[in-house]
Design a protein around this nucleic acid. Structure first.
Lengths: 225, 225
DNA sequence: ACCTGAACACCGTTCAAGT
DNA sequence: ACCTGAACACCGTTCAAGT
């Protein structure tokens, strides 16, 4: 009897067993997903884990640090999914399309997480944080893909970083519309995504300024043919 | 002596003279600009106006309602500035460019206000709020411009609303980069803005899919000439 | 090392009471 | 009508104390 690890009435309060840091991060994410960022309180996530409400301070400096970690983690898996889409599509223009779709899909599947990453809730005081590095990494995935397309002559040859920001802007904007609920059904989101990616692709397609006014088109036709 | 409206020691507490609602809105905006959304407390804005901290509830249901009003007001002046740019440039493609520049310029000039408008801090419970109408109005300004360009054959003829969202996505994304401080000097912001608008314009330029792979370009050349 | 519980300062909001 | 001041419930954070 004395062998039993804990009497039936009440287990002696013991320290949190495993990786409390990870558990806190996970629990924060779950709460944010269901309640939103505004609904996240340190007290409740402590209670939910059966832990004092100050236990968290052993692992994070403050609430902002917790949110920063959430965002950092988000950027990491974000980049992974972008790269996975790029690989699965076999690179090339199809790969770029796939990355764009994956981008919007991530935002739609994890709207609260996406908000923490981009909503301006997290503003790290110091320069050169892990968050900044991870965020840059996600953009870098896009840049790498565009660089390869440039080397293969599939997109225009100008500054890759600038082009990456343009592409990012397009998919981010679409994601915003989807998250904010301005587009009701998923089909509308899909349609806008495909349209935007198509127009974006044409905007960065190689060739000497292929799109011009009807007027200029006529002039060009007269000269060339 | 009894004539003097108030003895030197202390003026009798009197009600807020003019338009308290407007004063609250204005003060909230000032605070947000200097302290950010997170730094806005009802108590302090009351104190700043020399008014009890509950006086606000005579004019707004709660803090969320105040923020909603701030966002609504933002969308109104936002739309005005977009339209002004469109008019000043004399419509046309130049007008579209001007609107895009004005868009980014508004965000850069009023980053905190822009964040309240788009950061997801405000989520009106009811459908069909004044905020929703005003936000739609800003997008509608863009749609109107694009519609005119379509009628004049200056951009592609497909669904105007979808095209407007695409254009909005581009400038919104650029604004985001600028606000989040990822682009250090204003010159970099300007450069990215111009680049993005140019690529966007080409993406929606009229003509039969003018941008294609080099391969398809060769085929087309062989047939046409 | 890691966790606890009481305490502190601060917030949004309510409400009976004043003019 | 509009404003006040006290009170309430809730929050993030600190800190001396426990194991």
């Amino acid at each position: 009897m004395a062998r039993s690890k804990s009497p039936a009435k009440k287990p002696p309060r013991q320290y949190h067993h495993g990786d409390l840091r990870r558990a806190l991060l996970q629990e924060a994410l779950v709460t944010i997903r269901s309640e939103g960022v505004e609904g996240l309180t340190l007290r409740e996530i402590g209670a939910r884990l059966g832990v004092s409400r100050t236990a968290l301070y052993r692992h994070f400096a403050d609430k902002a640090a917790l949110l920063e970690a959430v965002a950092t983690e988000g950027f990491r898996s974000f980049r992974e999914q972008l790269l996975a889409a790029w690989e699965a599509a076999g690179h090339g223009i199809a790969g770029l399309d796939a990355m764009g779709l994956a981008y919007v899909r991530f935002a739609v599947a994890n709207p609260a997480h996406y908000r923490v990453m981009f909503g301006g809730f997290v503003e790290p005081k110091e320069r050169q944080t892990e968050l900044a590095a991870e965020a840059a990494g996600a953009l870098h995935a896009l840049e790498g893909a565009l660089g390869e397309l440039q080397r293969n002559g599939l997109v225009r040859g100008e500054d890759t970083a600038t082009m990456a920001r343009f592409v990012w802007a397009v998919v981010h904007g679409v994601a915003r519309f989807a998250i904010d609920g301005q587009l009701r059904d998923p089909a509308a989101v899909d349609q806008l995504t495909r349209y935007a990616i198509e127009r974006m692709r044409i905007g960065i397609a190689p060739g000497e300024a292929p799109a011009v006014t009807a007027d200029a088109l006529n002039r060009a036709a007269r000269i060339d043919c």
